[in-house]
Amino acid sequence: MAEFVDQIPQQPGLAFEEKTHQYILNGTQVLPSVTTLMKPLSDTLYAGIRPETLQAAAERGTEVHSTIEDYVTLGITDISEARRGYFEAFLRWMKDYNVQPLSVEHRAYHPALGYAGTLDMLCTLSKSDTDPQVLTLVDFKTSATVNKMLTGVQLEAYEQMLAATGLQVEQKAIVHLQADGRYQMPVYRKNDAESWRVFMACLTIHNHKQKYK
């Protein structure tokens, strides 16, 4: 596992400001996030959904992600009873796939294209003790369903961001955590050309709009 840890990109010039939800490079340069760039897609998907419903979903996701980070990095568990099932699903996934976390909430940016993002987890996993460990990029979801239009583009943007720093993941997956303690783990195709074209279109539109601000 040490060889994987050594490959994880370290980009100390990148900071994240919680209040403005902005990534700042070297103290001055604001980098758009993957989530921001994908707003033309997500806005279409979530159109018509009540703001309070979206807010509740965001708060649930934040709590579960924070609990996972605390558990992996500090070995502590602190989650509300209403959302405990999501964390139990995470623990079940960890056990089922012999997951070895390498990094959680890992911030990175694409040095050439100038976008940034936070990766939920880089880990190795395998289906059994006798199978080889596979370097995997994981994004956790706590939504009612997983929308592949969004998740495919999101994971591809992260994959290419890592590749630009020299790290080639062996697979990427969504771990869909559910309130009843169950989970699903759809695995996504590497180097998905269609998803990459869509993301690049979003980035092109963003950069064009910035020129006329």
Rank of each mutant, 00 (worst) to 15 (best):
D96W: 05
W93D: 05
E18P: 00
Q22E: 10
L31K: 00
G13S: 02
S66P: 01
K19T: 09
Y23V: 03
G117L: 09
A89G: 11
D43L: 15
A47P: 04
A82G: 14
Q22M: 09
N98C: 08
R83C: 02
C123P: 00
T53L: 11
Q29P: 00
S33G: 15
L150M: 09
H21S: 10
P101L: 06
Q100W: 05
F16L: 10
V64W: 10
Q55W: 01
T44N: 11
D120C: 04
T130L: 10
V138D: 07
Y115D: 02
P32I: 08
E18F: 00
V72I: 05
L54N: 04
S33K: 09
E81D: 14
T118R: 10
T73G: 07
E81L: 15
M121L: 05
S126C: 07
Q29M: 12
S128I: 01
S66G: 05
K95N: 09
E105Q: 03
P40R: 04
Y86W: 06
L37G: 06
V99F: 08
S126N: 01
L31M: 03
D70E: 08
R92E: 09
T118Y: 00
S33W: 05
T44I: 05
E63Q: 01
D70Q: 11
T142C: 11
Y109P: 00
S33D: 15
G48C: 01
T62F: 12
G117I: 04
V34H: 10
T35K: 06
Q100F: 15
R84Y: 10
D43H: 14
P40V: 07
L150R: 02
A15E: 15
A108G: 07
F140A: 07
T124Y: 08
E63C: 00
A144M: 15
H21E: 13
R84T: 14
P40Y: 04
F90N: 07
I24W: 07
P111S: 03
A116P: 07
D78N: 09
M38Q: 15
P51W: 02
N147W: 02
D129H: 08
K148E: 14
A144C: 09
Q29H: 04
H21F: 11
T35Q: 13
W93Q: 11
V30R: 03
L102H: 06
N147F: 03
E105S: 01
V134Q: 06
L74V: 01
T35M: 02
K148G: 13
L119F: 08
Q22H: 13
N98H: 15
P40E: 10
R60I: 13
K141Y: 10
T124S: 11
P111E: 02
R60S: 12
A56G: 11
T130A: 08
T142W: 07
L45M: 12
V104W: 02
G13T: 00
V138R: 09
A116S: 10
E17Q: 07
Y46M: 13
T28K: 13
L137K: 06
A116Q: 00
I68S: 03
A47N: 08
H21C: 12
H21T: 09
